[in-house]
Structures are given as C-alpha cells and as structure tokens.
Write a protein that binds this DNA or RNA. Structure first.
Lengths: 205, 205
DNA sequence: CCCATGACTAACCAGTGTTAAGTTGATGAA
DNA sequence: TTCATCAACTTAACACTGGTTAGTCATGGG
C-alpha cells in the first residue's frame, strides 16, 4: 500500500498548500481580492489544478472557515486547567485577543468578513462557533456561581463581553485605531480588559 | 442668474441621487458589490453619465464616507444638552448604537469595511472621526471629574468603551448574532450597555 | 443658426470563475 | 520490456463582469 499511501499524503499536502497560500493572500491583499489565478500563480500551478482539489472558490473559503474555528477552539482550550473562575475569565479574554491578533486573517474571515455564502447559518459552521460561545457562557456562569459576578442574565453578560473583545479585535484588524501607536496596542488591550472586566469584579461575600 | 442657478441645483440633485442610490445598493448587496453599472441602471442613466458627476468609483465611496462621518457627528450632538455627565455617557452609548443600527450601511463603510484606499489616514477623513472620538473622551473625563468613574487612563477608558459599542454594532451588522432573535436585539443591546457601563458606576463620594 | 452641455452608445481592456480537451509521465499487467 | 491506463496537470478558451473612455447626438440657451 506504499504507493496509494504516498499519493494520499501528496493529495493532502497539495490541499493544505492551496489552503495556506489562499490564507496568506488573504492576509496580504485582503478581501475578495483572493483570486484563483492569484493562488495558482503563487503555488506555481495552473488555475485549473485547483479544481482537482476543491469544488470551487467558495469551497476554499469554506475550508478555511472551518479550519479557523477549529484553531480558535483549540486555542481557547489552553485555559481549561485554570481552577479559579475569575482568573479563567480574564485569561479567556486574553486568549481571545491573542488569537485575534496572532491570526488576523482567520479572525477576519470568521468574525468580520461578509460570509462566503451568508446562508450557512444553522450548519455545523455555526456549530463550531457555538461550541466556543458556550464555553464562554459556562465560564461566566462559573463566575456568577462563585460570587464573582452578580447573577444577571447570562446571555446578556456573554454578549456584552464578547462584543467588547470582538470590538477591540476588529478595530485593530481593520485599522481604525490610528490614535494608538502600533507598539502600544498589546498594553492598551490589556489595560482595557482591566478597565472593562477586572474592575467589574465583585468581592466574594 | 436664474438658469445657472437652476442648473447648479440640478447638478447637486443628480449628485445626491447617485450617492443615495449607491448607498442603498450598499445596504442591499453589500460589499464591493456596488457597481457603477448597477448604480446607473438603478437611476436609469447610462454608466458614463456618472463620470460627469464623479471622478471615479472611489470618489463616490469617498463622498459617502465623509457624508457618513458628518451624519454621525450630528447624531451624537443630540446628547450635548444633557447636564449630568453619567446620564450623558449612557445616552452616548445608546446614541452610538442607534446610529449604527439605523444606518448600517454608513456604519459598515465607516468602521468595518476595508477602506476605499487605506492610505487616507491622516487626512480630514480621520479628522471627522477624531472629532467624534474626542467628544467621547471629553464625556468620559467629565464622568471622572464628577466622581462617577475612577480616574484611570482616559485613553484606555475611551478605547474600551468604544470597542464595546463597536463590537456590538459590528457583530449585529455582520450577522454574527444568530443566537439572538432579531426582535430581541434592541433589548439585549440595552441590557448589555447596563451590564458593561451602568454597573460600572461608582457612587459619588 | 451656432454650439455648449448633458446624455448615450459602443467599445476597450483587464480580470475572474470555470470547464472542456489535450498532454504527459508514472504504474502495473502482459 | 512493452504498452494501455489513469491520474495529475496544462492549455486555451468561454462567458461574464466592471471600470473607463472615445465618439456621437439631441436640445435648448444665446
């Protein structure tokens, strides 16, 4: 089975070569500026070759989309081990931001870009996103139960916190923060998390 | 001067007809999906006619961009009359959100879309945005001075609050809130503002 | 009657997604 | 060793779309 096996591997490699290149072009050119011909040229194959590995252009964006949520979820899981719910929530926000800032292309695709086909809503695409959202909600609930946060509407709290981190991430990624010098951004983000979340901590009674 | 005057008026009307139509198409089709041919068809003129009123496509986006910041600033000014800084800050957030939700096309263009020509940064484009940002900062400072907020870093506080509202606005506009039923959105937004801002209020000592 | 102005027609040109048809080189049976 | 097969890959084209412009025409003020 050596040969079939090797071919299988090569096929996978080609797929991820295309995927990686597409993602890199996203980063560089942004937008729908990613073109099949562009990808093809970059990997030094003909445009038609790509169709041997992907159904069409959307299929590529789709694959990147799911891949993004996969990475995102894995990235979040690093905070699982933190015992104290409050510390965990804070790290949660930090992890969110570090994912966004270290993977701006993925973040953009997942949370900012007008979707490749807006119809895919109830699909397992959303499922992957939901998994992460539920993880956040669980974390907030733990904080409420531990007395760190007043027992308010869980959905509202989750939406508020998510909005806050997403707001920072998308302002930075879409370059609306001209007033903040680039090198100061991580510090400002951290301070903002303090301002918004840390300062909201209720002393355990 | 009757004739020249009338022609002047007609020219202005045509300009804003094009602008309005372009903006409406933005709303409907979104994206860079706005095409000169599309606008032309909509206003029932030939594509070439548009070039009599605008240099090129970017010129149109540009005009919409400035128009957007103009409206935005005017919208914000309605809260000027509120005396109590804390009430004013809360209304500020609400006004931000109502602008965003009532003018999603403008909001998208101004704060989310990858800019039509990213280079225009230090320009008066940014100036118009800055004016609104400074207004927010002033409001926050008033709250600090009135003892409603602890005297922390003003820039951090402004960035945090802006991020929060922008996060809500952009999640909603770019339809990442599948978990919230459409009709519940205004209420959730309000509750989130309470959660994030209202609850952060420090009693005057 | 002249011609400036506003508008239109028609086309150009550069892309873009996509596909049909051909080429080639390795694979594996005869 | 030979050679049909087949998958990978390419070429070339199709069918569009979109921004843009050159050339043309009608109308109405002077």
């Amino acid at each position: 089975m050596g040969i079939a096996e090797r071919k299988e591997k090569e096929k996978k490699e080609m797929r991820s070569l295309i995927l990686d290149t597409a993602m890199r072009l996203f980063l560089e050119k942004g937008f729908e500026k990613v073109t099949l011909r562009g990808i093809a040229e970059e990997i030094e194959y003909s445009p038609a070759t790509i169709y041997l590995y992907f159904k069409d252009k959307n299929d590529i964006l789709f694959a990147l989309h799911t891949e993004g949520f996969e990475r995102f979820y894995r990235h979040q899981q690093t905070i699982r081990t933190i015992k104290d719910p409050w510390k965990r929530l804070r790290k949660h926000a930090q992890a969110y931001m570090s994912f966004a800032l270290e993977n701006p292309e993925y973040y953009d695709l997942m949370f900012i870009m007008r979707g490749p086909g807006e119809k895919i809503k109830a699909d397992r695409e959303w499922g992957a996103g939901m998994r992460s959202y539920d993880f956040l909600k669980q974390n907030i609930q733990d904080c409420m139960e531990a007395g760190y946060l007043p027992r308010e509407d869980l959905d509202v709290a989750a939406f508020a916190i998510w909005s806050f981190t997403h707001g920072m991430a998308s302002l930075i990624i879409r370059q609306r923060c001209g007033m903040i010098p680039k090198e100061a951004i991580p510090a400002v983000v951290n301070a903002a998390v303090d301002f918004m979340i840390e300062a909201r901590k209720k002393q355990k009674q």
